[in-house]
Amino acid sequence: MHISDGVLPTTISLATYALTLAGTALSLKFVRPEELPKIAVVTSAFFVASLIHLPLGPTSVHLLLPGIVGALLGPAAFLSIFIGLFLQSLLFQFGGLTALGANALMMGVPALVCGLLFQLIRGSSLLSNTIAGALAGGLGTFFSASLLAGFLFTSGENFLGVAKLALAAHIPVIIIETAISAFTISFIYRVKPELLMWKQR
C-alpha cells in the first residue's frame, strides 16, 4: 500500500524527502559507476514482479518485495527502490509524487535491514537459505507496514484508525510474502547461488 498525495502534512513530506535523498546519495556512493546500468535493469524486473497479483480468496494481492530486493542488491537496494517507486508514481499513480520520500523510506529501510539480516543468517545450506529468505520476505513486509502505520500515526491523531486498519490489511500479505520469498530464494540458491552474495559481486 503506497501513501497518496495529500495525506501527510507538508513538514513530514519534506522531511521524508530529505531523508530519502540522503539515503539515495549514500546508496549511490556504495555502488561502482559501471554497476549502475545493471542495477537499473534488475530494478525493472522487480518493478514488473510487483505488478503480478496473486489470488487471495475472492480478491488478489500484489507483493511488495522489499526483503528480496534487499537480499539480492544489498546497499544498492535503496537506490533501486527509489527509482522503482518514482516510475510507479509516474506511470500508475501508485503513491503520490509529494509522498515519494515517505514511500521510499517505507520500502527502502526495510530492504536494507532485511538484506543485512539475510546475509547474517543465511548460512550455507539450502534449508538455512530458505529460512533466511522467508524471514527477510516476511519481516520486510512487516517493517514496511509498520512504517506506513507509523507515518500515518505521526501525521495526526485522526489517522489512528486508518493506521490500525492498514496494519491489519497487511497480515495476509505478510504470510504470502513469507512463503513466496522462501520459494524464490530457495530457487535462486539452487540455480544461481552467486546472486545471493552481493559482497563479492
Binding site: A45, L54, F183, F187, I188
Partner: peptide, 19 residues
C-alpha cells in the same frame, strides 16, 4: 505459492543474466 516463487526466481535470474 511454490510455482510463483519459482517464477519470480527465474525472472530475477534472467534479469541478472541480461544485465
Amino acid at each position: 505459492m511454490k510455482t510463483m516463487g519459482n517464477f519470480f526466481g527465474m525472472l530475477f535470474i534472467s534479469s541478472f543474466d541480461r544485465t
